[in-house]
Design a protein around this nucleic acid. Structure first.
Lengths: 187, 187, 187, 187
DNA sequence: GATGAATGAGAGTTCATTCAT
DNA sequence: TATGAATGAACTCTCATTCAT
């Protein structure tokens, strides 16, 4: 692992535990087993670290979302797959879920941190739903709002998972949202 | 208005604009047209102000939720009314929506700030759904997860509204979630 | 004395002893018997303190120079008086001489620190010489360069005085430059 | 050119532009096209570089001054030649003039940097004047102070030249000081 | 000799909190 | 009760110096 990623991973842990503002550069450096100065060999500021964290996570999600979107499945399988992917990521690294949830809005105040790409995620969901409508598999609806519903659900579940850490809960949650969408969006 | 609430209102404005950590006591005091020292006559710390903000908002919501829950309407009308209430509040004071969204998780790190009461909100939603099931109006489902879906939706919409500030968007969003729930939860 | 000037005086002492870059805010605060934070209640930055020091000194000199320039004396008495004033100031506060000498050039790199007014001093000297020429008391010469000579002399003497601290030296120096100018500029 | 001098030249450029304290070792190394570590193969510290710069410049001046002093010319021609030499050096490398002016006093605080040799320069001027008196060509005067006048003039002119960079100004300045000295020191 | 990533002490600055008025 | 100047711990960031390669 590169030193930059070593710092990134450490920062994720500390920021998730303490929040961005309480995550001091000292703490991050200590967690990463490097000196404070080393942080600044790889990042121009503390904010830059958060930016990098978001970038990496975003890239990961967008590339996966896009892959699924372009795959040869029906709308419902695609949505289900995206949710499944999200939940798997949460289980793999619960810290990152917390950071995204907790810091996104405050991060958006900073010009340094570009969250444009994060905004693309609901758009991909919307595209998938749009296809479903065009192909006559889904009833007429506002796909943008519908994708917000799905996204909000993901975040709600994230929030709950951060607290209870139950994988079983994730599976049940996945089933419930799928049932709701299937039935609620049928023609 | 009491001086305490004068400070609360000012704090909401500043925190919404700058985020809790960037909202200095100086800025809050200036916005409230009082001296910094005055803050400490009414609050024991900066965090205490945030706590008070959450308390007030929470009380407002819980009392309204409970009222609606106990009213003599069918499940669907109750849920719709709760959403409508939320959206109205958002329009009345968009700042508070932003704060709840942005600071809730970071606030939860502080022992000072009691967010227990906020956790009650989804429970009330769950109660309403539970009733719907018992009375045979809704199909079997996990009401706790279903209430998370609704709650997540509220927050997603908040997030979008903070950006676009379109009231029309709120109305469309309300219609979409209602349609989805009605159809998706039908027996 | 105002607190701002209390800090200014302390800063002069510390900067003279250690140089601007080695004069830490901690040292200045300690010398001024205030907390570090207090510095920032009166100055926006460490540079701002140096700026203020220069401003005060400059104002003092310009007002005196101008007064002398406008007085009803012949050119030679005016120049002598200005030099005498300078040397008196040096004796009263040798620190300030050192700072002006040591920090002026580095200060000029900063946009914060306005040294424009310092540039006016040689101009006043030049004006006095110009008058001397017009009135036929001085031979033709480049007054701007001649004022640089006088100014350079002042600074040289400052430099020497910082080291030897001999008042007698100052008096001798005054006599020598006066003799040189009187004889060298005669018609 | 040796690597040590390559570094010296680079340091002169950077220090002249930014001042000693803002001239980081990184910048100096980059300007010299070597790695930071390489600096420390030739110099024991950053201050040591400045020391070396002063040493070289000083040696250059002292050897020239001495040569002129020992030459077979009358006092006035010698002084004129020394000034001419100084101004030529300034034109050849304006950076070095700025450094000497800006850093000399702060450098004097450091025990590492030996400026003793710089103090010799006015002494040589004094020697030349002394000879002039002994040989009956100059009137009685304090040669030490008179040499300070000449030295101060050189520095004043340096300061002005740094700003306006006009060679013509240098020539006029030379003429004026020569006229002043010739007339002012005559018997 | 040459490198440049790693270091960590120390810098300037901020800001929640206090308390004499 | 209201004030706001004073506080100083704690923050982010810098940079001269080192040393394994």
């Amino acid at each position: 692992m590169t030193k930059k990623d070593q710092i990134r991973i450490a920062a994720i842990k500390v920021i998730a535990k303490e929040g961005f503002f309480n995550a001091t550069t000292d703490k991050i450096a200590k967690e990463a087993n490097v000196a404070v100065g080393t942080l600044y060999n790889y990042f121009s500021s503390k904010e830059d670290i958060l930016d990098y964290i978001f970038q990496i996570e975003c890239k990961k999600r967008i590339s996966y979302y896009t892959e699924i979107k372009n795959s040869n499945r029906e709308w419902f399988a695609k949505i289900e797959e995206i949710l499944r992917f999200h939940f798997q990521e949460m289980i793999k690294d619960p810290h990152i879920a917390k950071i995204i949830l907790a810091e996104r809005i405050n991060a958006s105040r900073s010009k340094l941190i570009s969250l444009d790409s994060f905004a693309k995620l609901p758009m991909i969901l919307a595209d998938i739903l749009e296809e479903g409508i065009t192909e006559g598999q889904i009833r007429q609806c506002d796909v943008k709002i519908m994708s917000l519903i799905i996204f909000g659900f993901i975040e709600s579940v994230m929030g709950e998972f951060i607290i209870n850490r139950s994988e079983q809960f994730l599976h049940k949650a996945l089933k419930e949202i799928c049932d709701l969408l299937k039935k609620g969006l049928a023609k």
